[in-house]
């Protein structure tokens, strides 16, 4: 289909809406180079002092590494939990597979403020509040549904006859999975990993309930900082964070690109 020229009215309305949509993300970049002690826009002076300030802010740095380790662990565990579940629900199809799929993706339907409170109450009794294990479990319950969804789509899109061909050639089910199914799911697994990583790294509300003086994550620290004071520090952190997210996305896109190359036409 040819591109139809949008009417001037639509173009103007859409442009204004785009400005509105992107303004809060875009404004952070110039703000991060502010030389002022307090937040003002446009800044009175320019400098890189707030970038320097990040590195002397021990709690932020510590929280960054907690978030990084947490996201990596959550990603690995989500894959290890969701991959077998996906295979069971999509390929083995036990009775009630669809209901179970809905059940295991249901945590996404619950508002995180409600889920966070529910977990807070239970974890308080278990002594898991303010612990790394508690954070890990809370993040797992929101990451596994995403993993299950993306992996299930990826597996369901694999033509079953390629796996059947392997069986006719003498491969046992475990061998079929290892030699055929898993390699073909690799792009889906990479996308799932990236998604879980970003969801965990970005997760704020659940973490607010789980963190405490002993342990905190980067989004929680940023939240508390913005809540208590208005200075350009968070702008500098945000710019680095956006860059980091971009890096993850590009890395996955690269690996997916490779994946697509050998999937094409297959």
């Amino acid at each position: 289909m040819d591109e139809r020229p949008a009417s001037p009215t639509l173009t103007i309305l859409a442009s204004l809406a785009f400005v509105f949509l992107l303004a809060p993300v875009v404004i952070v970049l110039p703000l991060s180079f502010s030389g002022d002690a307090f937040m003002a826009f446009p800044p009175q002076s320019w400098s890189a002092r707030w970038y320097a300030a990040i590195f002397s802010h021990a709690r932020l740095i510590e929280a960054f590494f907690v978030s990084l380790g947490l996201a990596a662990t959550v990603t690995a565990l989500s894959l290890m939990i969701a991959l077998p579940a996906t295979y069971a629900l999509v390929r083995l199809r036990p009775p009630g597979a669809e209901a179970m799929f809905s059940l295991f993706t249901a945590p996404l339907l619950l508002p995180t403020i409600v889920l966070g409170l529910a977990i807070l109450i239970v974890f308080a009794g278990l002594g898991l509040l303010g612990t790394w294990r508690g954070l890990l479990l809370a993040h797992l319950v929101v990451c596994t549904p995403y993993a299950l969804r993306v992996l299930a789509t990826s597996l369901a899109n694999l033509p079953a006859d390629v796996e059947q061909a392997a069986a006719t050639l003498g491969a046992r089910p475990a061998t079929v999975f290892r030699r055929v199914t898993l390699p073909l799911m690799l792009p889906g697994v990479a996308a799932t990993g990236a998604l879980c990583f970003l969801v965990s790294f970005d997760e704020t509300v659940l973490s607010l309930f789980m963190t405490g003086p002993r342990i905190s994550t980067l989004p929680v620290e940023m939240f508390h900082h913005v809540e208590s004071r208005a200075d350009p520090l968070v702008a500098a952190v945000s710019v680095l964070l956006v860059g980091f997210t971009l890096l993850v996305v590009v890395l996955v896109d690269r690996s997916l690109g490779l994946g697509k190359a050998f999937l094409k036409g297959g």
Binding site: P159, D161, V162, A166, T168, V180, L184, L263, G266
Partner: peptide
């Protein structure tokens, strides 16, 4: 007898070649 022990060669309509 399961498929993998039947020793039959099969050519699928879609060919079902292993793309990787």
């Amino acid at each position: 007898v399961p498929t993998y022990e039947r020793d039959m060669g099969m050519v699928f309509q879609s060919y079902a070649l292993f793309p990787h």
